[in-house]
């Protein structure tokens, strides 16, 4: 792991823990009635957003999904306005108009979560087209799930991005379930990355539970895109530890299956064992990070709780410029 120095290791660990704690808190607050709407948790998938995002600059673009908190945190959004947003408060990133499924932070190139599965493909492709037309060397990353790979937008966007050699990286987070349906029962291929051949672009499978593997695979794809080599399709294989949404009765799988994955594939546990084995970080250093993250989460929740709801007269704000 020569390309990853200690500073980056600390950032990666902190980012993954931040996502995990944020999601655990979101779960709790939702069940407590403090978060309205639908909440889709990223628990178990932290290594993907983290591994990809540490290859990006602030002015690079991402498009996210309904399961978007992890991407948003990783791209550099702050926890306070995030928490306020998913609570529907005025101080949230979207002034309470978006919520969990429509969170965005344009200041850091986060072009929005999307309530429509597969809604991000064309938007990311267009952002990459903008970068190419400007000659700006920015790249765009489209995060999507195994289910979204069966949308027509997947095909149209990969074809267009390849035909025009656009600087876009398509990152499939294969968490095994398209909403509640096991992806293999509805998908033509075992590896979604295999579909890349139809678009004459590289298709690479990464271990989505290993942040180091994701980081290296994404690094090559981002460099290729920045240098004008065009798109890459990355499939990061992972497992969705939580249900499709908070409150999902999960009739489609057993507790044993989930527990087995959580025991063996937890990306944070996986990270810890690797860095401890290699002597790169100590337990104390990681405990210290855990504490800092816990404080930050606490402050974010307090901020969200204290923040006001939008006023009725704000309902027409921001419809048109």
């Amino acid at each position: 792991m020569n390309s990853i120095d200690k500073e980056l290791l600390i950032k990666m660990y902190m980012n993954m823990v931040k996502i995990r704690r944020f999601e655990e808190k979101a779960n709790e607050l939702f069940l407590n009635g403090e978060i309205p709407g639908f909440v889709h948790l990223y628990i178990g998938e932290e290594a993907i957003a983290t591994g990809v995002m540490f290859n990006l600059n602030t002015d690079d673009y991402i498009t996210s999904t309904h399961r978007g908190h992890g991407h948003t945190i990783s791209k550099g959004a702050e926890l306070k306005p995030m928490m306020a947003e998913i609570m529907g408060k005025k101080t949230g990133y979207c002034h309470g108009k978006g919520g969990s499924m429509h969170i965005a932070d344009f200041k850091v190139g986060m072009l929005g979560a999307n309530g429509v599965v597969g809604g991000g493909f064309a938007i990311a492709t267009g952002a990459a087209l903008a970068a190419k037309l400007r000659g700006s060397k920015q790249v765009a990353v489209c995060f999507f799930g195994d289910g979204a790979s069966n949308r027509g937008t997947f095909h149209e966007s990969l074809n267009m991005a390849s035909a025009w050699r656009l600087p876009v990286i398509f990152v499939c987070e294969n968490n095994q379930y398209a909403s509640t349906t096991p992806y293999r029962t509805t998908t033509s291929v075992e590896n979604i990355a295999d579909r890349a051949i139809g678009y004459s672009i590289p298709g690479v499978v990464a271990n989505g539970n290993d942040v180091f593997d994701v980081y290296e695979v994404a690094k090559a794809a981002v460099e290729r895109a920045r240098e004008g080599g065009g798109p890459t399709l990355i499939e990061a294989k992972t497992y969705r530890i939580k249900g499709h949404f908070v409150g999902d009765p999960e009739m489609y799988r057993t507790k044993e299956e989930v527990n087995e994955h959580f025991e063996n594939d937890d990306p944070i546990k996986n990270f810890k064992s690797q860095v401890l084995r290699r002597g790169e970080l100590t337990d104390e250093e990681m405990d210290d990070i855990d504490k800092r993250v816990a404080d930050e989460i606490k402050e974010a929740v307090e901020y969200g709780r204290k923040s006001p709801y939008p006023e009725p007269e704000e309902i027409y704000d921001d419809l048109y410029v």
Binding site: G126, A127, A140
Partner: peptide, 14 residues
């Protein structure tokens, strides 16, 4: 779909 969607994306990207 992607003609219009990428138009939206390019607009969001300036």
């Amino acid at each position: 779909t992607t003609i219009v969607g990428s138009g939206v994306g390019a607009a969001l990207a300036g």
